[in-house]
Amino acid sequence: MKRKGILGGTFDPFHNGHMNIAYESLYRLKLDEIIFMPAGSPPHKSDKVITSPEIRYDMIKQSITGEEKFKVSRYEIDKKGYSYTYKTLEYINGVEKNTELFFITGVDCLMYIDEWKNPSKIFELSKVVVLNRPGYNKADIMKKKNEVESKYKHNIIFIDIPLLDISSTQIRKKVSKHEEIKYLVPKEVYAIIKNNKLYI
């Protein structure tokens, strides 16, 4: 049975922190593949201006060229309506036969998982993997992890790794202030941001 990680997000823009998470998850969980899943229309960001899905998809596609164990999916981009994680996992389970799925997310998502659409289904369809993020207390994380595990009767895999303190919000702000971001994003993403005059 193959082991595949699903790493979703808005990826606006895709950055080196995302690559770090993907590699660490690949190694720590002994995965065969990481599937990046850029959101098409995320319901929790319906009130925000988001870069076009095609550009965000292209950022990832160009950044992972040559990476044999990294793939990017168009599923959420091409589907109509909001992108719900449990629906995405249902779809992937339908097309990826004989595969164990690992849904990889940040601790910030763990903190409000009860607000997600059908969280119990997410646990049924995948092993949920939570990675730490800068600014969170480990004791608080463990407390929430235990509460969620008890409620949904499924274990959560917590990966405590040194993370790059990079966020898409930080990058967009830097671009708007004409500050350098070359050290924060893959060179392919840097070119796309410049060529499309994004975030200015």
Rank of each mutant, 00 (worst) to 15 (best):
M1V: 03
R3T: 03
G5W: 06
I6W: 00
I6F: 08
L7A: 10
G8P: 00
G9Q: 07
N16F: 12
H18S: 04
R28V: 05
K30T: 03
I34D: 07
I34W: 12
P38I: 11
A39F: 09
A39L: 11
P43M: 08
H44I: 07
S52T: 13
E54V: 01
I55N: 05
I64E: 08
T65E: 15
E67D: 01
F70M: 13
R74L: 15
K80F: 04
K87Q: 12
E90I: 10
E96V: 00
N98P: 01
E100G: 04
L101H: 07
I104C: 09
I104R: 10
E115S: 15
W116H: 01
K117E: 11
N118K: 11
N118I: 02
P119G: 15
P119S: 03
S120E: 15
S126D: 06
V130L: 11
L131T: 03
R133G: 06
P134A: 09
N137G: 00
K138M: 11
A139D: 14
D140S: 10
D140V: 12
M142C: 01
K143V: 06
K145I: 05
V148L: 05
V148N: 10
S150H: 06
K153H: 05
N155I: 02
I156S: 04
I161D: 07
I161T: 13
L163V: 14
L163E: 13
D165T: 06
I166T: 10
S167Y: 10
S168H: 10
Q170T: 08
R172F: 00
R172D: 04
I181C: 03
P186S: 12
A191M: 07
I192G: 07
K194A: 11
Y199K: 10
